[in-house]
Design a protein around this nucleic acid. Structure first.
Lengths: 167, 167
DNA sequence: TATTGTTATACTCTATAACTATA
DNA sequence: TATAGTTATAGAGTATAACAATA
């Protein structure tokens, strides 16, 4: 097939660059706050937040890896750090002996509670300050379909094309 | 102590989570493409792109550091990698002997050209596919003020109070 | 045989501090 | 004294591959 457009139009470029810069600055500020307030990396915070959100306070390792981190070993590393810090506990799943269930502890919830207000403050002050309620609604409405589309689009070539002959 | 707003409202939460997820997935896809197409990290790509955009093909180290990376030593590290690969050249500035001017080479431009189409393809296919032209316009219009606001908001406690006259 | 998770390992990246040289 | 950049170093994070155990 013919080449895709070799470039983005100016409007797209503007949106793309703004998105990159905004999220980069936001991420940086958030990471600093998390580090200061609770000595947590962003990934660790995401893991705790996911566990805290869950009705049971638990998730399977694989589910966490799919949602937050991109490799299993990476999650094992982070989970063992969190466990060492007493913020989570790991136990074999009751229903499937292969699985490991990660559960947030009281200490984990406490840390989450201690860190969250500052987190919210940063996000409010940096991201939402210049946006009206309607703006925020619009933004959410724009991003939702993008997220759904990304979720449903298999990361081309992400799936291990382990075929030896392949390009 | 009086708590700050303990939480974001549901609309804000939705926008925030969508933003985080969208940019996370996008970043991941882009990084993979850059790695495959040109063995470039995202930071390295950003540096080359900035240099390629410049009319002179050059920037001072400090200007690059301010725009892309957050520490000078980090930039020195990346610049030396790029120089080793023949993609940029470093030379003392003519006007200020303290400064170093980084300039993209022909090889650097060639690599950029080889990598860009795939980059555009990923961004188009992932980010812009589900958005109409008006959507993109709206998105850009929403993010621009946020970016400006973030730029003008000193990262609380980030800057080691290097402010000259100020506080 | 496929899936879940861990381990060992190697590598990339980043930041801090000490240092040099120029303004 | 302040600024620009480099170096040394140390630490965090990530991914790949080999492995063990269960389905």
């Amino acid at each position: 097939m013919p080449d895709s457009p070799p470039s983005l139009d100016p409007v797209q470029l503007g949106a793309y660059f703004a998105l990159v810069e905004v999220t980069s600055l936001l991420r940086h500020a958030v990471e600093q706050q998390l580090k200061e307030a609770g000595d947590l990396s962003y990934v660790q915070f995401q893991l705790l937040a996911r566990l805290g959100d869950s009705p049971t306070g638990s998730h399977r390792m694989t589910d966490l890896a799919d949602g937050v981190v991109y490799s299993r070993s990476g999650l094992t590393y982070q989970a063992s750090l969190l466990e060492k810090a007493g913020l989570v506990v790991r136990a074999p799943s009751p229903d499937d002996e292969r699985s490991t269930t990660v559960t947030i502890t009281d200490a984990g919830r406490a840390l989450l509670a201690r860190v969250l207000p500052g987190h919210v403050e940063v996000v409010s002050g940096l991201l939402f300050e210049p946006l009206s309620r309607d703006d925020v609604r619009t933004l959410a409405a724009l991003l939702a379909p993008v997220r759904d589309h990304m979720r449903s689009t298999p990361p081309r070539s992400a799936a291990p094309r382990r075929r030896k002959g392949g390009a």
